[in-house]
Write a protein that binds this DNA or RNA. Structure first.
Lengths: 274, 274
DNA sequence: ATAGGGCTACAACATAGGTTAATCGGCCCG
DNA sequence: CGGGCCGATTAACCTATGTTGTAGCCCTAT
């Protein structure tokens, strides 16, 4: 069961929360963003929002609930690439591709906003700062995948698992879905296994070790992290890759001054010399 | 030793080659792109172009040579996230971050173009189609990392290795660096091991198996793939994720409508080119 | 030419994690 | 109330891959 967020102001939308930790959005940008989130769809758990191999349809913004992005081999082996949390985009740049190379499947009931891919062109043409912010969000997602690659390649099962738990805790706090070291993890052990490149049995063993050592507690889907510091240290967790810190000043400067909406021209400054 | 590309027209620049397989660039876009590549630097092998933890400096465009993008754990374990080939960008969106979460190190002598991060703002403001194309390129890179994640999580050592070889072959052909199933792989087995999440010894065993089965040949750094189809099948390689196929028509349309001031004219749109 | 460093190669052994299979508890449904 | 299914849990066993150690080759520096 997910929280039920009726219509809410754009200021409380998870995407806005995430982006605003990166740059200050103007009113026009805010209202355009909120317009992108106008069409809202609800889907039950275990629904495919996107299927590997299919041509793209709409771009989605996750507003509430959990999903996984995963890829499968022809023989059925499967890898969960990332968890899709509120504020994350689904198929953003992928719309620029011929067809999807991954699937996205809901874990809980979700609420997603949906807009046609044509609007991406519009977005890039008319709201360059917003476009850059979304590019930033995409780059951040890539950084998360790269960190998971490091996990699968070079961390042990115990380290990987600890690392993932701390990562989720951090990411969930950004969108106010975790407090006090505990959160709901709407996930079977099979999915954890597929995310960490382990077998179900071994994930089970590993969780047990974490519980036995008192680092975490599990009650149903509620997970409690008793000692974040220590868990982070077990997982060699360094939050640098989540890029929670604001972009350096020079970029704010690069973008300041020139918000233009539909068709406007960039006011003079800094014109490219071709 | 790398090929020595003197000054060459933008049309022969690897980045242009890569982007033009995606959309048709206008003359203005071409010349802006070429302006971005104006400042060129050469670096010897084993040079860090970027170091994990450091504040960002310039954005780089790889024009010639090989590099690796890698991440390290405090105890020295290392994962190669991706290979940086001509036409790839270094630290593009990362400039939007506080500091680097990965290192980039050259494998060969390289030639890179370099421009200050401020120009990203300029690019987004004035050349939205180009910005979208670069976003596409970034998304494609993420797709590659995700596919490698699938490899490390769910493919055996043999499959992973075969998969990587086929991937490199495909990527190198786009920039005309592979022909007839053979190319130069300027890489030690240690680096391969770090890319595939294996030990050096095991990569050695695995390459031996591939050689024994006649699928590949190795002479020094030259690798020859005797039977691409079969190697691809061993690695369960499906090139979908490389997104070599052009974006669907609707997107060209999205970008062709309201052009910007110095923006592109959709000259003779859509020359087919897969 | 000699010594040393970097890399490939392989053998012998060790182990993290996979596989198979059985049990158990909860939950839905008739 | 009883079956049936799904997921968690555990035990016993197995194998892919890691570790350690040694040797040889090919550079380059002296």
């Amino acid at each position: 069961m997910t929280r039920a967020p009726a219509s809410r102001a754009i200021e409380h939308t998870p995407l806005w929360l995430k982006l605003s930790s990166y740059l200050v959005l103007s009113d026009e940008e805010k209202s355009y963003l909120s317009d992108l989130e106008r069409t809202i769809v609800r889907e039950p758990p275990r629904t495919d929002l996107l299927q590997q191999g299919e041509r793209y349809r709409d771009v989605r913004i996750m507003r509430d609930g959990w999903a996984i992005r995963h890829k499968a081999l022809p023989d059925g082996r499967r890898q969960v690439v990332n968890f899709v949390l509120p504020g994350d985009l689904i198929g953003m740049y992928c719309t620029l591709f011929e067809s999807a190379d991954h699937s996205v499947t809901t874990l809980t009931a979700v609420e997603v906003a949906s807009f046609p891919p044509e609007r991406i062109g519009e977005l890039f043409r008319s709201f360059p700062r917003l476009a850059a912010a979304l590019a930033w969000s995409g780059a951040r997602e890539e950084a998360i995948v790269a960190e998971r690659l490091l996990s699968l390649g070079r961390r042990t099962a115990l380290e990987r698992t600890a690392h993932l738990i701390v990562e989720l805790l951090r990411r969930l706090s950004i969108v106010n879905m975790a407090a006090d070291g505990h959160f709901v993890l709407p996930v079977t052990q099979e999915i954890l296994a597929d995310a960490l490149g382990l077998s179900i049995v071994h994930i089970n063993r590993t969780l047990r070790r974490l519980r036995d050592s008192g680092l975490i507690e599990l009650n149903g889907q509620r997970i409690t992290v008793n000692d974040v510091r220590q868990l982070a240290s077990v997982g060699q967790f360094d939050e640098l890759y989540l890029h929670l810190i604001r972009a350096p000043r020079r970029l704010e400067r690069a973008f300041s001054g020139a918000h233009h909406h539909n068709g406007a021209r960039p006011d003079g400054e800094d014109r490219p010399k071709a």
